[in-house]
Computed example of a mutant assay.
Amino acid sequence: MWFRHRRTRSVAALAVAVLSVTSACSADRGEESLIHADSLVIAVKEDQPRLGDTSENGRLEGYDVDVARYIADYMGVEDVEFIGTTSARRDGLLARPESGGSPTPETDPTGTPERADMVVATYSITPERKTRVTFAGPYYVAKQDILVRADDDEVFEARDLEGSTICQGEGSYSTSRITAGLGIDVREESKIESYSRCIELLAEGEVDAVSTDNLILAGFMTEYPGEFRLVNNPFTDEKYGVGLPYGDVAACEVVNEAISTMYRDGTAEELFRKWFDGTGIEEFDENGEERTYNVPQFEGCE
């Protein structure tokens, strides 16, 4: 299921200014905004340790899950259902054919449409994705980095990947940032179902490296203690956005307010430390300054 109409709203964030955006945008499309929801279906990863993973009791948990809960709470929505997704399925879960710009909707094995109201799943904001999805945020700016086996003494930066076999999860753009972005000639293992499978292939010696967001890589390192080395030489910014149905500008504005509040009240730092302290992510920025937890620069709701 997806969101139902909310009968009341007591959250200060849904102020007159935001409601005016709703009438200007959602009404033109003939559909409701998520700010009217009294329940939400939120898609998160289910196989990425510390970001979105299935716990022993079967519950989805991690940094992204906690961020999503914070946003839903800010919106005044208590009825939240979390579903798992892969990188390749994220766009389709948000598809609303009537809104335009969206891809083919996802369906289950019986052909029944599957939908999510919101996707919080290491979903990097890119110009190409913004033609299909409305993004709030970013709520975190990760860095693309490289994971190799612990005994690898040759890879210390992206250019050392020349001629190597790189594993990429289906629906991700990580390898293209090395090849097209940096002009490095690598052999690519593409269309692997998920990054968890890429990590297995790295452990088995079937690929030379996995390159994606440093939070994803650091999370997997905790599942394979001593087997891998995080190069810790990042080369791109990965802006994690909250994916929303295309054109829901009103919801985007409210989610941005939630993210701003999350940083101002200290929750952003608290959640990051909860899930990533001790994982190998550097505590200092590229200038040697201690990490700060400031509100990221938003992309703007389009």
Rank of each mutant, 00 (worst) to 15 (best):
H5T: 06
H5G: 10
H5F: 05
R6K: 07
R6A: 06
R7Q: 09
V11Q: 01
V16F: 13
A17D: 08
S20L: 01
V21Q: 11
T22G: 04
A24V: 07
A24Y: 00
A27W: 07
D28S: 15
S33G: 07
S33R: 00
H36K: 03
H36I: 05
A37I: 00
A37P: 02
I42Y: 05
A43S: 05
E46N: 06
G52F: 09
T54G: 05
R59Q: 08
L60H: 06
E61N: 14
Y63M: 12
D64F: 05
I71M: 07
D73V: 12
G76N: 01
E78M: 09
V80N: 03
F82H: 05
F82N: 02
T85C: 14
T86D: 12
T86S: 12
S87V: 00
A88S: 10
G92H: 08
L93M: 06
S102D: 02
T107W: 00
P109N: 06
E114S: 01
P127Y: 11
R129Y: 08
V133M: 03
A136N: 04
Y139L: 10
K143W: 10
K143L: 11
L147P: 02
D152T: 12
E157V: 07
E157M: 13
G163N: 12
G163C: 13
G163S: 08
T165W: 11
C167R: 05
G169A: 15
G171C: 11
S174Q: 07
T175S: 12
I178M: 13
T179L: 12
T179W: 09
A180T: 15
S194F: 02
R197I: 09
C198V: 07
I199Q: 05
V207R: 04
V207I: 15
D208M: 04
A209L: 14
V210R: 09
T212R: 08
N214E: 13
L215P: 01
P225T: 10
P225L: 14
E227C: 09
N233P: 06
N233G: 14
P234L: 15
D237F: 06
D237N: 08
K239I: 04
Y240P: 02
G241R: 00
G241Y: 01
G241I: 01
V242Q: 01
A251L: 03
E253I: 07
S260Q: 15
S260F: 06
T261S: 12
R264H: 10
E269S: 11
F272M: 12
W275Y: 15
G280V: 03
I281K: 02
E282K: 11
E282I: 11
E286C: 14
E286T: 15
G288M: 08
E290S: 14
N294Q: 09
V295N: 07
P296L: 01
F298H: 02
E299P: 13
C301A: 03
